[in-house]
Design a protein around this nucleic acid. Structure first.
Length: 504
RNA sequence: GUCCCCAUCGUCCAGAGGCCCAGGACGUGGCCCUUUCAAGGCCAAAACACGGGUUCGAAUCCCGUUGGGGACGCCA
């Protein structure tokens, strides 16, 4: 089995295309097949090397590795259409020679006029030009006169083209509704319908899995396979991915490219797992199986026959849920490394060394279970890097809570206990809390909430058992660890007591 | 307009004639847990687009309607 993903390098990798790539990859990996990456850059105007590089990077990030491609090479190289021009030329000449293709001298304006007319008269907007009946001599004469014709494939009349789509079953088209496609442009570059056929055939692609928008191209491609003497592959057309309003997913729905989801802090394994769930389900019969599983497991279970026929709406809420799952089980050092950029973006400049990363990793235990995405980590961990007792007291709720004498007692007792206490870890913090409890006779929320406010500067946040030790671990960090200065618990408590005194 | 594809909870899926007065998940609501916010646990509301057939019996098969999507490019 040989499958391929064939993006045109004209922009960012869209999640819909990423899903197409994923389905190809899943099939190849699950069946011991070969996954080919081919760059369809025959549109000289729009294709760029930058886009190509970006797409490759996105695919790598997703973990969709390819066995043959423009960078890795392979037995059917080259894998960039712009480097295969001689092949298309050869097959086009063959078609021309056998009269299965012909030269077309029509101008863009003429064609457009013909389209308008057809549309206006309620007839299928089919191309019908007189070039089809030009004799070889006439055509040669015009070429000799300096004209640059395109080459069209002659679609046979009065025929039914039927193919069995691996996800939809039989699909039938009548050739009367298929116009003669351009196979070579006037500039000598092959057109899509021609290049795919030549490449898929020459690369021995056995299964063409692509978006549903290609379904109506399939009959002309099948005709081309026949004319060229090739055997058509199995086709499988995937329903498109839609936005919440059921229109094709686009920028106005928000993020659409893999790169955007990446920079928002989604994990690649989450995007992959989620994308696989649009239009497909790993569940067999019974319907209560788990749907969260790593890519190899997805591949093991994947089958084209199980792919749904209808379009799916991209649901970022569910993506977020999948991401939360992977955040919870991810290696903390990895998350620490990934989080650095988000701190910098959030205005907490840092470039941690190993010690700094280890500190971040330990602090991440209070963020990775409660955040949707990595870009929310800085906010969740803000208590570490920003401490301002005065600012905390400007919060009306905090202020009113701290007007109570009992709460003040707690904070004062805390500050006193801390003057003699060592840096806090989980155990010593509990000991201190117990001391404060004994001295003030406060317990539960009345005890811990004032402590929380005094130490973290805010009324909500991660568990104190996690936050308090993290603060002191941060305070102990050497200045050259690459982490911004973190004020310790002792200093925070003292500062808070002074702030209360000033604000009475 | 013509051709093609599609149609189960708000969303993603399960369901391949009786197991379905339709199951799971996300989201939503409630409850529990809890020193806060989350997280987690439990419970609940929520759908077979419509109309005809076929059949003893249809979410499942057929036809039509409606709705959505795609294509009709010297874009891919």
């Amino acid at each position: 089995m040989r499958v391929r993903f064939a993006p045109s390098p004209t922009g960012q990798l869209h999640v819909g295309n990423a899903r197409t790539a994923l389905f190809n990859w899943l099939l190849a990996r699950g069946r011991g097949g070969t996954f080919i990456l081919r760059i369809e850059d025959t549109d000289v105007e729009r294709s760029t090397r930058e886009s190509e590089a970006a797409i490759l990077e996105d695919l790598r990030w997703l973990g969709l590795d390819w066995d043959e491609g423009p960078d890795t090479g392979g037995p059917r190289s080259p894998y960039r259409q712009s480097e295969r021009l001689h092949l298309y030329q050869r097959y086009a000449s063959e078609l021309l020679a056998s009269d299965r293709a012909y030269y077309c001298f029509c101008t863009a304006a003429q064609l457009e006029a013909g389209r308008q007319e057809a549309l206006a008269s309620g007839r299928p907007a089919l191309y019908a030009c007189t070039c089809r009946r030009l004799s070889r001599e006439q055509a040669q004469a015009r070429i000799g006169a300096g004209e640059h014709p395109a080459v069209r494939f002659r679609v046979p009349a009065e025929r039914d083209v039927v193919f069995t789509d691996a996800v939809r079953g039989d699909v039938r088209f009548h050739t009367d509704v298929i116009s003669d496609p351009i196979i070579v442009r006037a500039d000598g570059h092959p057109a899509y319908n021609f290049a795919v056929v030549v490449d898929d055939a020459l690369m021995d692609v056995t299964h063409v899995i692509r978006g549903e928008d290609h379904i109506s191209n399939t009959p002309r491609q099948i005709l081309l396979y026949e004319a060229l003497g090739f055997t058509p592959p199995t086709f499988a057309h995937l329903a498109l991915v839609m936005g919440p309003d059921h229109s094709p997913l686009s920028k106005r729905h928000g993020a659409t490219s893999v790169a955007e989801f990446r920079s928002k802090g989604y994990l690649p394994e989450a995007l992959v797992n989620y994308l696989a769930l649009i239009g497909w389900s790993p569940r067999g019969h019974g319907g209560d199986d788990e749907e969260l599983m790593p890519a190899p497991e997805l591949a093991r279970r994947f089958a084209l026959e199980d792919v749904g026929h209808s379009a799916g709406v991209f649901d970022e809420e569910k993506l977020a849920w999948v991401n939360r799952h992977y955040l919870k089980i991810a290696d903390l050092m990895r998350l620490a490394e990934l989080s650095v950029r988000y701190f910098n973006e959030a205005g907490v400049p840092m470039s941690p060394d190993r010690r700094g990363l280890e500190f971040l990793a330990s602090a991440l235990t209070m963020a990775n279970v409660s955040v949707d995405r990595l870009n929310q980590v800085p906010a969740r961990l803000a208590l570490l890097f920003a401490y301002d007792a005065e600012a905390a007291l400007r919060d009306p709720d905090v202020a009113s809570e701290m007007r109570a004498e009992a709460a003040r007692d707690v904070v004062r007792a805390l500050a006193e206990e801390l003057t003699t206490a060592p840096r806090l870890d989980r155990e010593t913090f509990r000991a201190v809390a117990n001391q404060v409890k004994a001295r003030t006779a406060q317990k539960g929320k009345a005890l811990f909430h004032p402590i929380r406010i005094a130490l973290t500067g805010r009324p909500d946040g991660p568990e104190l058992d996690l936050a308090v030790p993290a603060i002191d671990r941060g305070a102990e960090l050497p200045p050259d660890a690459g982490i911004p200065k973190i004020i310790g618990n002792r200093e925070r408590a003292a500062e808070f007591v002074r702030a209360i005194a000033r604000n009475r």
